[in-house]
Design a protein around this nucleic acid. Structure first.
Lengths: 158, 158
DNA sequence: AAGCATGGTTCGCCCTGCGAACCAACCAGA
DNA sequence: TCTGGTTGGTTCGCAGGGCGAACCATGCTT
């Protein structure tokens, strides 16, 4: 374990690969004139509208941070606050049409970029990596802040 | 591929696991009154002193960003600028004694926390995950911004 | 009706990152 | 030896991001 020449232990491999993916995510966001946090918000909202408190819980940020992130993205016309019919205190944050388009484009471009990272692995190894990481993600209750990408469809493979 | 119930494709798994590791890294940093960027700088400098331009290249940040990150960490007494004997324009950034201690403690604590993430995998699966991620890291030339952790030594296993 | 809890906002503060502009030092070529 | 281009690092204005305290409106329970 960790003794094969040049191989990292799982801990360092997780941390360094996290840096790698974060860097790629940031590069992709920059391409769409987004910050990583703005891109992440758009990806989260692709599934459905959320309340500020729900976004706060999913992203593990203070509510004030979400208030102001939503402020900035709504000023760009990407998201909108709407009253929550069930609770007059609450707002529901949803994507505008422009936000949907930009979010989708950012999401797909990010998937393409990230898809290149394990290109040195063969199909079986990719599947194994995906399966093992999926279990880590599931075991640690990682919220769905990035949609599932269907990378088996022919049109989505580069 | 991606078709086993509940499993993600490798792309989404990489992105979501990156969010997970980033969150754990930030939590660990907070425990030591560090920001993730400050913690990362300390980890990088554990290996050796570096020039601002070298740190800029490793961390893929503007030189001005490193100038100011070094400013903030040196104000805390964690790092120090020293003249580069080979080039009077340059400075070498190195850890102070306090910075070494804090960096080491942060690094070890982070390793312990990250080590918990794949606890649902058995030893063979951990080894496979480490091997596959190592190859992704190596293939993408990820700089060594997080030291290798010897997780086979008995004293380092929780 | 009252008190507690919750949803969200405001704001001061600090951290971070960028890019333009700048200065000092280095290096190669004439 | 001199000159011009390159490099290393700094300063500063700007924008984004995150936190926590304080606050207000609303919901809920007693």
């Amino acid at each position: 374990m960790g003794s094969v020449e040049g191989n990292l232990g799982v801990v360092s491999a997780l941390v360094r690969s996290s840096f790698l993916v974060s860097a790629v995510y940031a590069e992709s966001a920059r391409e769409y004139r987004l910050t990583p946090q703005q891109g992440q918000l758009l990806c989260v909202l692709m599934a459905q509208p959320y309340r500020i408190s729900e976004l706060s819980a999913m992203l593990r940020l203070a509510k004030s941070s979400l208030t102001e992130l939503v402020d900035r993205t709504s000023q760009r016309g990407l998201v909108v606050r709407e009253p929550d019919p069930d609770d007059r205190r609450a707002v529901r944050v949803s994507l505008t049409e422009q936000g949907s388009e930009l979010g989708e484009a950012f999401y797909l471009a990010t998937c393409e970029r990230v898809d290149q990272l394990p290109s040195g692995l063969d199909a079986a190894e990719r599947a194994t990596l995906g399966e093992l990481l999926s279990r880590v993600v599931r075991d640690n209750n990682v919220p769905t802040t990035f949609p599932e990408w269907d990378d088996t469809a022919p049109a989505t493979r580069g």
